[in-house]
Design a protein around this nucleic acid. Sequence first.
DNA 1: AGCTGGCCGTGACACCTGTCATCCGGACCG
DNA 2: CGGTCCGGATGACAGGTGTCACGGCCAGCT
Lengths: 201, 201
Amino acid sequence: MIRLLLADDQALVRGALAALLDLETDLEVVAQVGRGDEVVEAARASGAEVCLLDIEMPGLNGIDAAAAVRRELPGVRSLVVTTFGRPGYVRRAIEAGASGFVVKDTPARQLADAVRRVHAGLRVIDPDLAAESLIDGPSPLTDRERELLTHALDGSPVATIAARVHLSEGTVRNHLSAAIGKTGATTRSEAARIAQDRGWL
Amino acid sequence: MIRLLLADDQALVRGALAALLDLETDLEVVAQVGRGDEVVEAARASGAEVCLLDIEMPGLNGIDAAAAVRRELPGVRSLVVTTFGRPGYVRRAIEAGASGFVVKDTPARQLADAVRRVHAGLRVIDPDLAAESLIDGPSPLTDRERELLTHALDGSPVATIAARVHLSEGTVRNHLSAAIGKTGATTRSEAARIAQDRGWL
DNA sequence: AGCTGGCCGTGACACCTGTCATCCGGACCG
DNA sequence: CGGTCCGGATGACAGGTGTCACGGCCAGCT
């Protein structure tokens, strides 16, 4: 019997996944959480062996949660699930210590198999995503550029961003200009979207 | 036995919801589709009585799909499910002929009850969302403003938007300026986000 | 000790954007 | 019929934005 922890911020999806996986006779959902920063504690308390982690979560995202699990509970394996593409996430998830990476677009029947493989110590990675992540390569952005791009995601004016990060307005423009060049965009909003799509944020 | 159709673009979520609802002895999932424009045909072929529709779908969104079901299959009821807030969606979903509106944040156990109520001819609406939709009121945007805002969602420059809709650059700026005023924003990106959050797009 | 590269800042310049005033045509309504 | 509203357009102006050149600081590497 494989003991599972589910982490997803949407209660309905979480409950539905639990129903799906509980149908398997060799799987048992022993914990469910809706926030990334509750994963480690719940996994420890419930004695989970595999954690199914969504990326988009309040508190702590799924990748950082996988890293925390890796650090605090070395024997527990993580399987990261996310909504779509975002090839860059694959690389970061694996580097964070996740054993698998699955998109929510895969057929439901394959999920249980992915869990079993991860539990057995194998790596499970969506082949299409793996290929894309190799094509795009790692992020060329510096830490500052990444930080500023995340603040530019919602289209905030430069002045606002500069105030939030306590930098000069000109400096922010320079960093963002560099990021625009590296992403091949022409606007900071466009650069931010491209970077996010590639998982560089 | 209530015959159900599931529509969600993410196969994993779709399958999981099917597993969840099939656990109920009085419910039966008779059709699953991943696109909005396949809903009516699948509902007709399978003899579904209630359609569970996600809003974000390729082809046709859940609200328009509900309207199509209403028009083509008057006896079939629709229950719209979406990821979060977006109060304006509630109003539009109901106007489109949906019998219910549920967010993916609700506990999994309540979903089956919502389906039963909708099947019985009752209206099911998340109370928090209903309250918010009353506070925000209907969209004050004109059709043009709405159209231009959707093109402004990704942060495209005015020139690009003008070319896409075959309008003068100045006209686009004027409409967007009006939209910015109505949303209380200071940038077209911000206005676009606000309008989307309120379901005005 | 030099070189490199990231980070921070300034200044200048061309261009883009948001706002306002003003105009015209059509549709709708009292 | 006149009033009102929306769509479309123009022109002008202040302020925001992207780019570039330049300088300075610091860490790491040769």
